[in-house]
Design a protein around this nucleic acid. Structure first.
Lengths: 121, 121
DNA sequence: GCTTTCCTCAACCGAATGGTTGAGGAAGAG
DNA sequence: CTCTTCCTCAACCATTCGGTTGAGGAAAGC
């Protein structure tokens, strides 16, 4: 389907039903039937949604008798986080430079350190 | 078009060309022509992409003579960040609770709560 | 064996998406 | 006023997407 992994993750989360599934899966693993129950669509539609999430690497399915328990995979979220953080750093860098120009070039003071807890690449 | 703001933001960033535009706009504002130049598509296509980004609130356009300078709007990224953080909190909460269960096993704890999930807000 | 439960695959459908081309508005340059 | 530049709107086209229904596989229960 769609090309790069990042596009797949963003596209997968662009659907509110899929986002809701992810939210619920963050609480507990669930079977396809359990996942489908609150929504007003067919089980097949939910199965399709799960395939999209699985292709994006957000979810994995194992096997337990006839059931296919769905499990949320956390790592892929880091892809997004990293991309967003990169943008954020660039934007801050941009404003920092603008600030420097307006302040007539100070030495190397960093007036706005990124307020983040460890997520740096 | 697509419904809620969060869906629009995710959908807007699901396209690699649009993500690249955002990356470049994080460095500096740009006109439509400047933005279109590196890509192998028509200017109209780029204009459409910008419309998607604008509808998502990621970008704003002003007017300078015939030119329409494009400016990146940072606030909307917080929508995503907040959603991701909420997921992260839930996931951590989940593992914390699992830890509690394995450690203590109280009486009236239901280890598999029925799918009475609240809708995602 | 047969049935039931849980789930996926396949085909189809309408709507949205990303691209094209062509026409045209808006504003500066001559 | 005319021309050029920059950009958007409109129509069209192929593909993808989210949904449906119908058929069927896999594993437990009878």
């Amino acid at each position: 389907m769609a090309g790069d992994p990042l596009s797949r993750v963003f596209a997968a989360l662009a659907d509110p039903t899929r986002r809701d599934m992810v939210t619920r899966l963050a609480v507990a693993d669930a079977t396809v039937g359990e996942l489908a129950e609150p929504y007003d669509v067919s089980v097949q539609a939910v199965s399709k949604h799960l395939r999209v999430l699985e292709d994006a690497g957000l979810v994995s399915r194992s096997r337990d008798a006839q059931r296919r328990p769905v499990h949320l995979e956390a790592e892929v979220f880091d892809l997004m986080t990293k991309w967003i953080e990169r943008y954020r750093r660039q934007a801050e860098e941009r404003y920092r430079r603008l600030d420097d120009v307006l302040r007539d070039m100070p030495d190397d003071v960093d007036p706005l350190p990124p307020p983040q807890e460890g997520q740096q690449s």
